[in-house]
Design a protein around this nucleic acid. Structure first.
Lengths: 199, 199
DNA sequence: TAATATACTGAATCATGATTCCGCTTGCAA
DNA sequence: TTGCAAGCGGAATCATGATTCAGTATATTA
């Protein structure tokens, strides 16, 4: 059930292959979403299907591994944002960067829809809720963020933006980062500074 | 390729069955998304699989029929909103109601991701772009809506909100309509009226 | 009400993709 | 340098779910 236990104990070639599979999977799933096929992952990693399965007993486990990696990175980003001087820059930057990550990874989008519980579990495991809550509270204390926002609203906003932003991109590609900014701007506390009305 | 041509020319039982299939499909797909299975649709409609296929040559066509129905309704809603006295009430109400519709229909969410071109085609066919553009321009002329918004931004916002709103609902169910309001509020033109800061 | 074109049913068939499995390699400890 | 446990490859197998089709039923119409 569980994937290979201790990576250190792996034979050198096995370790190498494992990395190759993860890298290939990350890229392929990002591009094609959950639809990406195991044989293709194997091919992309220059490895047989069997090898993929040796390291990740099922497609699900492989996907989960990717999600875990993503959230670990995201948690780092959150800590980084928490350390920024300006609390507003903190959350806004966090939202911005997670939305971008989401928008660049089709699999992440699919997964928040089709494997919601798994994703929630991973997010909790890396301490996301606390981190985001801190980002939110901090910005609110500073009077920069709308008071009626909860940390739970953040993933919803991020996923929503990232997800559709990516799909509907076809016609208006390049326009979506702007949309992210618009939404972020809309989250400011009513009184707080706002860019002057454009044009 | 095309489904049954002239509904009028159908035998009475055929017409009845067709309706039953559509109704069953609408409900089932809304609940289970694109994953819903044809045999289940048949069962739900009290009909054999063969009958489903007689009316809709493929799952794709069935789904398309549902999407068309949805957009026809949405276009009506848009026209209705265009007729409202206050231009701001117009788009905001339109956004609100489409987001809700989206949030209530898992299939709609799947489809905007997996069949983006088809959806775009249908939307264009019912005249959505023009309608939304009018809603946007009208509100902007009245100074109520951010000037940096394009009609293309609206579907992105609506789909994003609706989609994730629905999935991540588990924990914070009941909180999502509020989120829609927050986003809508963020779309106001910088100067225009805004509710006083809550609490 | 008889003839027949329409429609219906659902078991059987197909297609797609995940997963297994077994004979062959290869890193590495002795 | 050997021995062999750990790994590998990839054709074969399974599972799932869409789609077909041959036999049967029923509106319709003359």
């Amino acid at each position: 059930m569980t994937a290979i236990e201790n990576i250190r104990s792996l034979r050198s070639d096995a370790r190498r292959n494992r990395e190759a599979v993860l890298a290939a999977a990350k890229e392929l799933f990002a591009k094609e979403g959950l639809e990406a096929q195991m044989p293709d992952v194997a091919r992309a990693a220059n490895v047989g299907v069997g090898t993929v399965y040796r390291h990740f007993p099922s497609k699900d486990e492989l996907v989960t591994a990717l999600v875990v990696a993503h959230f670990e990175t995201l948690a780092d980003k959150a800590r980084e944002c928490l350390a920024m001087d300006d609390p507003w820059d903190g959350i806004s930057e966090f939202i911005r960067s997670s939305a971008h990550a989401q928008a660049q990874d089709r699999c992440l989008c699919d997964v928040t829809t089709d494997r919601a519980e798994m994703v929630a579990g991973v997010a909790i495991a890396v301490g996301m809720p606390e981190l985001v809550d801190q980002l939110v509270k901090r910005a609110q204390r500073a009077g920069k963020l709308r008071r009626d926002l909860t940390w739970e609203d953040i993933p919803t906003i991020v996923c929503g933006l990232g997800t559709t932003t990516q799909q509907l991109a076809g016609p208006g590609i390049g326009r979506w980062p702007r949309l992210v900014e618009i939404i972020i701007d809309g989250l400011r506390a009513p009184g707080s500074a706002k860019l002057p009305p454009p044009l």
